[in-house]
Design a protein around this nucleic acid. Structure first.
Ligand SMILES: [Mn+2]
Ligand SMILES: [Mn+2]
Ligand SMILES: [Zn+2]
Ligand SMILES: [Zn+2]
Lengths: 156, 156
DNA sequence: TAATTATTTATAATAATTCTAAATAAAGAA
DNA sequence: TTCTTTATTTAGAATTATTATAAATAATTA
């Protein structure tokens, strides 16, 4: 569990200003369990800052990703990029029916960073460990409740 | 190393017709080492089938992904989705400077499938194990040779 | 305070992907 | 083979997430 302060202090140490908008985005990222998309962050921060722009969301996310404190999980069958402020090694599990992403602790992933660095010589900046499939609920339900575009029926 | 036959037979067993276009796409996917994008597959298959349409590429990829014989790796800093016909567990390593993705065998990832299935109850359909950073060559070079859009400077 | 610089906002532009409908090809029956 | 049916391909239009731009605003420093 990361704290909002870690994110805002990372921005500050990178020479960036601590604005109310950035604080709100960092707070939401750190406290969310849902691996939010830019659009989701936008609609939630908009409650507190009705004038906020999507560009601010994207800019802040890009900065945090480049600073290595946020990971990019990619699409989860919904045409939108999901982000994860938990950068400690863990497995992300996406359901391609309900598009939810949950965390799963794993003994094995915790070893991957070292294994990869040692074997490859890469300078690692982030990770994307996402497994996709059907969650127990959606396996039982058969199909999701609300209609989907074709593009939302699988994973990209 | 997967064979083109595995892919085409999977399509056949799913009740789909084996067309020359699909064979060409499967062959390219199976024999490529580069984790190609839809656009890359398009330009390569176009040499043999000058009339092929991008829609055919996307349709075939979607089918293969849904059948579980192709994995979706997502973006690698180039705004395009990369695919992987090697679905056996391994680590994909992307360089955010030169946008190449290489495979890395890993003892630890081979255990992840079982661990996840047992712990979560999900029905797994695919995986996206992608680590990103700077490859040894790009670490040495400092910066890539050709100019990039802002959106191509990081990973999404 | 004013001057400077960074940031935010609104909006336009871009481009990857998806959708649509007509043309074509494959499969099966006779 | 020819006819019929159905699946697939194709070309192009539509969609939409993301990025770029430029003016307005806010933070910083002197
Ligand atoms: Mn997570
Ligand atoms: Mn691979
Ligand atoms: Zn589900
Ligand atoms: Zn490189």
């Amino acid at each position: 569990m990361i704290t909002p302060q870690v994110l805002t202090m990372t921005l500050q140490q990178a020479g960036m200003r601590i604005t109310p908008q950035r604080v709100a985005i960092c707070k939401l990222l750190a406290e969310s369990e849902e691996h939010p998309t830019a659009a989701r962050i936008f609609e939630q921060v908009k409650v507190l800052f009705p004038s906020i722009s999507l560009a601010t969301i994207y800019n802040t996310l890009e900065t945090l990703v480049n600073l290595g404190v946020v990971n990019v999980l990619g699409h989860a069958g919904d045409d939108q990029v999901h982000y994860d402020a938990e950068v400690d090694p863990h497995v992300n599990l996406a359901c391609i029916a309900c598009h939810r992403i949950v965390d799963l602790p794993s003994e094995h992933v915790t070893h991957l960073d070292h294994e990869i660095t040692a074997a490859s010589g890469y300078k690692l900046l982030g990770a994307r460990v996402l497994y996709y499939g059907l969650c127990p609920a959606c396996q039982a339900a058969g199909s999701p409740s609300h209609p989907l575009r074709k593009s939302q029926t699988g994973i990209q």
